[in-house]
Design a protein around this nucleic acid. Structure first.
Lengths: 133, 133
DNA sequence: TCTTGACTTAGAGTTAACTCCAAGTTGTAA
DNA sequence: TTACAACTTGGAGTTAACTCTAAGTCAAGA
């Protein structure tokens, strides 16, 4: 699979894919004899992982660390497990914050919709919220 | 409340608080006659909102837009409601990605823990996952 | 009053994560 | 075999969101 095909499949730029490889977010990609990237299933699986975890806000540094450990072989299984668990906490923590924001948003939207329907800003029970918009 | 107290309360730097005010993520904060920031309840409510939505990955630009609309008065209620709904979609979308990453992590952690317990990398049913680490 | 530490501003610098550029190479189609 | 698009690299540039610096002002205690 060419870099272009991978780009299109995952809606990501070629520059980003090359950047990921250069800094070690993914291991080195398989090449043609001429030196052109030819993504195999395994390469693509790494790309998929990288995108998935970056989408979840994981820092590039953490992904690099994981790939480095992976390349050191079986002796790093413990370290990798720990890293994955750390990542898990990281994501759970972040998701908690998303839920709080969502709750706040739903509350605000509800009030604004009442204001729209009635044509007036009718809230009176929550001066603080009224003041802060 | 002084800037220092607000910093400590929300675990955020004074620089960030001043930055938020400067670029309009929050409206201008109440000052003492000498020009020193003296956060009132309303100011703090804005700070809380800013932190909450930034924590949920909302871009600063979006918060600035909201504050701008808020300051333009009641005529912008529709626009504000739309902005809030857009923010809601944004966060829901992001959270979906967090859930996907979490699922992937849980799967990997499960397999690594088996490897740790048995002392061997025993997975055989999923060559692809094995290869990609 | 003087000192000292926290505050102020404008503006420059930093960091993470890309994103772009120039100059050269590869591979396919005519 | 020549054109030409798509690829390659190293390195510079960009963007968002802070973070720091310098030079000065404010305010509480000795």
């Amino acid at each position: 699979m060419t870099i272009k095909e991978v780009c299109e499949k995952y809606d990501i730029t070629a520059d980003t894919l090359r950047y990921y490889e250069r800094v070690g977010v993914i291991p080195e990609v398989t090449r043609t004899p001429g030196g052109i990237r030819d993504y195999q299933e395994t390469d693509i699986a790494w790309v998929e992982n990288a995108i998935c975890f970056r989408d979840a806000g994981m820092p590039v540094e953490m992904l690099i660390e994981y790939v480095k450990l992976y390349q050191e072989g079986d002796s790093t299984i413990d370290a990798r497990t720990n890293l994955l668990k750390e990542a898990r906490e990281y994501i759970l923590e972040a998701r908690k914050k998303y839920d709080i924001a969502l709750k706040k948003l739903d509350y605000k939207i509800g009030r604004y919709e009442i204001a729209q329907k009635t044509g007036v800003l009718t809230w009176t029970c929550d001066e603080d919220d009224k003041k802060k918009g």
